[in-house]
Write a protein that binds this DNA or RNA. Structure first.
Ligand code: FES
Ligand code: FES
Lengths: 158, 158
DNA sequence: GCTAATCTGTACTTTATAGTCAAGATTACT
DNA sequence: AGTAATCTTGACTATAAAGTACAGATTAGC
């Protein structure tokens, strides 16, 4: 249950493109230098974002990447699904069922219930965040985070 | 941000040992058959749980694994930390900082703020769950999940 | 002491993820 | 048309995670 490199870098790249604004665009070399990764790797990450429909690319001279939609129309939860999949896929329970009770027939399993609760908790945060929310500084973002309904416990974020 | 195999199997194994009750114990071959994994792999998983201090092992004939503490004293959040680490480790920001703004000096980063919010949301669920809560069937567990403060949105769990 | 059942530790192989490389396709400009 | 800047793709290598193999150590019972 760690963030993958795809998720970390992917979201950062998307934020950088968002910062470029409406008309602005970012090239692979620019992204590479900004994130401190190789151009080839930046290209690979940006491809995932493009195929996910979050950014669009312009080829040729003066080309680059730009947002495919306004920042407020890009839900971070959707981005994360494309970059790194879901925490809990119920297919795991089907394919990894054991012999004895608990998970056997994938029915009546308290563990699965817990995984779903965790997934919902994460979705509550990520489905309410849009790229627009991330295009602000950390302090403003922390203020925003406190507005998430059902996330009262976040008050200890400074 | 997927569940790792360690986390999936590790928690299942712990639940099975918990089911064995106070005096009861489970051997590696038993666990192997129950979970449908090789004995060697079951042993590897159980070692992690043992070194985490959640179960204790008895060697020799009539040996096996048993809980190191009462089920209600085992917090699932602690178990998950041992099995799969945290979602967001701030060390990532330090070691993977780019050149241009946003994450550069690991200050004033809205993305990091979001990761922290996700981590807190997960901790809210996992820090309130004990092994005792998992030693019941799925329906009872779903009822329990709804009692988590700050997780009102979980009502759509059936 | 011997044996069978059990856990323990290290090293190995396999598979998935992370990251690189090189050849090709597109576009703006002249 | 030619050139330079740019994205696109598939295959490649490196590293981490998943899963296996095996020799060794411990204990109960005889
Ligand atoms: S059915 Fe998936 S963890 Fe039990
Ligand atoms: S400082 Fe870590 S994501 Fe920005």
């Amino acid at each position: 249950m760690k963030l993958s490199a795809n998720e970390e870098y992917g979201l950062r790249c998307l934020v950088r493109i968002g910062y470029a604004g409406e008309g602005g665009s970012l090239t692979i070399p620019e992204m590479s230098q900004a994130e401190g990764v190789s151009p080839a790797y930046a290209a690979k990450i940006l491809r995932v974002l493009r195929r996910g429909g979050f950014v669009k690319a312009a080829r040729g001279k003066d080309g680059g990447y730009t947002l495919a939609r306004p920042a407020e129309a890009i839900v971070i939860g959707d981005v994360m699904d494309v970059l790194g999949g879901r925490i809990f896929e119920s297919s795991f329970c089907d394919s990894h069922a054991g012999q004895a009770p608990i998970c056997t027939r994938s029915v009546d399993c308290s563990v699965r219930s817990l995984w779903r609760a965790v997934q919902v908790a994460v979705d509550q945060v990520l489905s309410k965040a849009t790229l627009r929310d991330l295009l602000q500084n950390e302090e403003e973002m922390n203020t925003w985070v406190r507005t998430i309904p059902g996330a009262k416990g976040l008050h200890f974020i400074q």
